[in-house]
């Protein structure tokens, strides 16, 4: 947060001087840009609303609640594991395999949660197997696999898997 703030402070403070030097955009251009900016904001709002309705439609069509299963990945707080990949199997079938970029890893480290899989399973008992690969802060390669049982009821099932250099657990969400 601090870094971002500093970045913006410098960038925009710099821009102030550069803009003043460059004698940028005349007032008429500025007005036009402002007008367009407001129209762009409006269309963004419209598109967001369409996106929300489309997401609801997609969920109803593809993942009805009685079979809906979603698996989420979170990193344990302040864990130093450099996560490279996660693989998920449901009832012995591979359903997701994710390789993490630096940006994605950073997003997880900042407290974000990745929805790695959305699919359908019938109600009843199931098994989930999660395999992670990464590097410890010592530089040593690290892999781990854990299996968990879960029950799918008639409501949508959300499974949260918390990963770390010393843990891999199915969260109670």
């Amino acid at each position: 947060m601090r870094n971002l703030k500093q970045f913006w402070l410098v960038m925009t403070a710099t821009l102030g001087v550069l803009a003043s030097g460059a004698g940028f955009a005349e007032a008429s251009y500025r007005e036009q840009m402002k007008g367009l900016d407001e129209q762009v904001q409006e269309v963004k709002s419209d598109v967001l609303s369409i996106a929300a309705e489309l997401a609801r439609l997609e969920e109803r069509l593809l993942y009805p609640s009685n079979t809906h299963l979603a698996v989420f990945i979170a990193l344990a707080e302040r864990d130093t594991l450099r996560l490279d990949a996660v693989q998920v199997q449901i009832d012995g079938q591979q359903v997701a395999h994710s390789i993490y970029s630096f940006k994605e890893l950073e997003a997880l480290q900042k407290g974000g949660v990745q929805r790695i899989y959305t699919g359908n399973v019938p109600t009843g008992e199931h098994q989930i197997e999660v395999t992670i690969a990464g590097k410890l802060d010592t530089g040593k390669e690290y892999t781990r696999t854990e299996r968990f049982a879960f029950n799918k009821g008639i409501e949508p099932k959300l499974l949260g898997v918390t990963l770390g250099s010393s843990q891999l657990q199915l969260g109670d969400w």
Binding site: A70, F72, A74, E77, K103, E104, E106, A107, L108, K110, G111, G112, V113, Q114, R115, L158, G160, W173
Partner: peptide, 21 residues
């Protein structure tokens, strides 16, 4: 974007994941 400590809502966490990127 805010960090999601003691996260209780997975979809809120997903929103943070997207925002963080």
């Amino acid at each position: 974007p805010c960090a999601g400590k003691d996260l209780r809502d997975l979809y809120f966490g997903e929103a943070l994941y997207n925002a963080n990127q």
